[in-house]
Design a protein around this nucleic acid. Structure first.
Length: 482
RNA sequence: GCGAAUGUGGUGAAGUGGUUAACACGCCAGAUUGUGGCUCUGGUAUUCGUGGGUUCGAUUCCCAUCAUUCGCCCCA
């Protein structure tokens, strides 16, 4: 049997619906913000990432998927989105567009050669935005507000936004010198990685998880103390503007991003979700005014952020947030004989074109099996075809919830279906779904026998974790999601 | 790159150095001569990730390998 590559995932079934829903919300939100979609190649010349992200970053040093194509060109599967977008901005001379800043967003797969673990895959999906061509702090605030508002729209409540400023070049240089002065006497006590960081990019020692408890790290010069007047003023503006956009944040002077290209504003956004472990950072970003020139473009300001969709969905699941996804059908057409089957097909065709979600039987199950199938698919109405009825131009329509069955004349059928289903839909939240999802504590001791009453899991009957509140929407394949 | 755990049918999951590998769910069929979701009955794995070794004999012991999962590093 063939298996997927390590750290990659097949997304299908209910999971796929969640992804599609989240993507839909992203598209909607981006429309409001007037960011336009950009699709750049999944691989680029390796140089784009090496120059852009910095050779000293771990991501570039040992976590990229590199390959040589048949023309002996060095290529790299994109490990993040910004470098490619900036390359595109330069190559397509977007800096010449009249509508500056150029505001784009992407939503696609990225690749990092790492050991997979919870919340971290080799192929993962990131949604991100880039705003190029304005250095106004208002852009910083707006970009930070995007993930905040996205989380709000999705129902994720407990989030934390941390911000910091690295300052402009002068501030960074001053800070860097101070750091070197500070750490030099302690060099031998630092972890091996930090020794290397000391030489290449001392700033990142602040980010070290190994040495984080050492006092000399706690007393290390903070970026904020070394901001020059201009940078300080700028940071104040960002904070002021964030408040106007109703973004709650905390200033974290130790916040340093992993990539070299950031300056001024950097931020991180995490979800406070139980069971998330160390991968609770959902998204991060910052300003990168030097990056465009680094990739041989004209001096251009840039600000962006990226977030992992997989982690976001994991957070939504852990928080048991109910997404309004369609997981039922409106009409299931049942038949037995060949003439009934043919009638079923043409009826299905017209009902679908009319706008109903319609299913039928494909595997010659008996009528009993078709009832079961209709239940599995959460069908609201059943149309039961019968040669005798058809001779009288009638069909039987059974309401799968009330179990009421009526004979309907064919000329009246569309009207009847439309009426019945619109009443069905109108039961409050409009979710078209059962509500008790959140609080169905099944006492079945591990196996759900009946999906009736207050016990609405769609596990198809085999949830085996008797956690009391096993809320899996696993649609029939519960793997242990926790 | 480092460390740990796991690998039995469609699913969850027992189990033992030795005839036909529990149990449950699911699925299929029948009881119910064209109306389900309850109940009952029957069916559903030449086989315990793969390769090798120890043994009279291994799913069970050992080694290797692959895969999965989790943690560290790093990161979204």
């Amino acid at each position: 049997m063939y298996t997927k590559p390590k750290g990659c995932y097949d997304i299908y079934g209910l999971d796929a619906k969640k992804w599609q829903y989240v993507n839909k919300v992203i598209d909607m939100l981006m429309e409001k913000y007037n960011y336009t979609f950009i699709r750049t190649p999944i691989f680029e010349s390796s140089e784009v990432f090496h120059r852009g992200m910095g050779d000293s970053t771990d991501v570039v040093r040992k976590e990229t998927y590199d390959f040589m194509d048949r023309g002996d060109r060095n290529m790299t599967l994109r490990p993040e989105g910004t470098a490619g977008v900036v390359r595109s901005y330069i190559e397509n001379k977007m800096y010449g567009d009249a509508t500056q800043p150029v505001k784009v967003y992407y939503n696609g797969t990225m690749y990092r050669y790492e050991r997979p673990q919870s919340g971290r895959d080799r192929e993962f999906t990131q949604f991100g935005v880039e705003a190029l061509g304005s250095d106004d702090p208002m852009v910083d605030a707006e970009v930070i507000s995007i993930p905040v508002n996205l989380f709000k729209m999705l129902g994720l409540k407990e989030i934390k936004v941390s911000i910091n400023s690295l300052g402009d070049k002068e501030s960074r240089d001053n800070h860097r010198e101070a750091l070197i002065k500070h750490f030099k006497p302690h060099l031998e006590e630092l972890c091996p990685d930090c020794k290397e960081r000391f030489a290449k990019n001392p700033l990142r020692i602040l980010d070290c998880k190994v040495d984080k408890d050492h006092t000399y790290l706690k007393d290390a010069p903070s970026t904020i103390d070394y901001l020059n007047e201009e940078s300080k003023e700028r940071f104040e503006k960002v904070k002021e503007y964030l408040a106007l956009l109703e973004v709650d944040y905390v200033v974290d002077p130790k916040l340093v991003r992993g990539l070299d290209y950031y300056n001024h504003t950097v931020f991180e956004i995490e979800a406070k979700v139980d069971g998330f472990g160390s991968n609770n950072v959902l998204g991060a970003g910052g300003r990168y005014n030097g990056l465009v020139t680094l990739l041989d473009g004209p001096e251009t300001a840039g600000m962006g952020f990226a977030m992992g969709i997989g982690r976001l969905i994991q957070a939504l699941e852990l928080e048991k947030i109910k997404l309004p996804i369609v997981d039922d059908i409106e009409i299931f057409i049942m038949y037995v004989s060949e003439t009934e089957k043919k009638y079923a097909m043409s009826l299905m065709q017209s009902l679908r074109m009319f706008g109903f979600r319609v299913e039928t039987e494909y595997t010659s199950r008996g009528l009993k099996g078709q009832f079961k199938q209709a239940d599995r698919l959460n069908s609201k109405l059943l149309i039961i075809l019968n040669d005798e009825d058809l001779k009288k131009d009638e069909v039987k329509v059974k309401n799968n919830k009330t179990k009421e069955e009526v004979s309907i004349g064919l000329d009246y059928l569309l009207y009847y279906l439309d009426e019945t289903l619109s009443i069905e839909d109108d039961h409050g939240c409009g979710c078209g779904e059962s509500h008790d999802e959140e609080e169905h504590s099944c006492e079945c001791g591990g196996h759900c026998h009946d999906k009736n009453e207050n016990h609405d899991c769609k596990c198809g009957g085999h949830c085996h974790e008797d956690d009391g509140d096993h809320n899996c929407d696993c649609d029939g394949n519960c793997h242990k999601e926790g």
